[in-house]
Design a protein around this nucleic acid. Sequence first.
DNA 1: GATATTATGTTGTATATACACTAAAGAGGT
DNA 2: ACCTCTTTAGTGTATATACAACATAATATC
Lengths: 144, 144
Amino acid sequence: MTKQEKCICIQLRGAARTLTSYYNAMLGPVGITINQYSLLHHLQELGTANMSALAEELRLDRSTLARNIKPLIAAELVCDSAISGTRNKQLQLTEIGEQRLLHAKKLWKKAQLCIEEQLGEKRLKSLIKALAKIETIGGHTDDL
Amino acid sequence: MTKQEKCICIQLRGAARTLTSYYNAMLGPVGITINQYSLLHHLQELGTANMSALAEELRLDRSTLARNIKPLIAAELVCDSAISGTRNKQLQLTEIGEQRLLHAKKLWKKAQLCIEEQLGEKRLKSLIKALAKIETIGGHTDDL
DNA sequence: GATATTATGTTGTATATACACTAAAGAGGT
DNA sequence: ACCTCTTTAGTGTATATACAACATAATATC
């Protein structure tokens, strides 16, 4: 083997798809995706947040968040408790959202542990480090 | 540090987004995305292929490929040389497609090398291995 | 207080992705 | 030739993602 001829980006994207599919399958019984899980989880951490704050927390574009949050609001897992007439939203989990997240956490943990085992401690550590390094490319070195 | 509390899947997705954005920026001058680059590249390798074969090569759903290939056909980088009335497509690069890919390859190489350098040989190798391991999860152990 | 600037959220457009379904072409068996 | 089963491509729907543009609210500046 001479060089790494295959595109690192494409390989990374492929692995992300595969892993997403795995987590989604594990979360199937709760009826949310891993992406939605992440959104709910971060919102719970924040307690309350407007779109901008939540988007920043999730490292997503505001417009992306606006679209991702729609099905969650429709399913009443998230609500906006802002006073009418104000532009600044007050997003938070609903009761149903809290319960759903609680349930999801168990399944998430199972999935996470399973992947950790499959990878092994050493490979996991180096993976996390490599991913962190990649995140520093092309800009945002702001937080942390 | 006790455990890996952050979701591996979400971290992987984030890194994939970041890296995609980087490759896309590098490919900007050619006017194609890294995803489209991958499509063109694989199609060139195959020479000629129908949708199913190309989708399998790319590890994508046929319907995904159908959508991804549309802008490339519209831009006349890819064409279908099948006889009219036949269902089986004969996809291949056009002249423009070949030229564009040739140009893109140079920029891709630059991006790839830059990332390889940033990661370092050791981290790169372990990353590739971890990604390969992840790809074996949840199914397709068919090829290789 | 009026105006200029910024923050905030949404919409339009485009790519990326998959599952379920449909339509139609091909292949085989009788 | 006719019928069946499979292959092949495309559509509908849904999520995920970002950039550009916009409208309006909030804030700062004068």
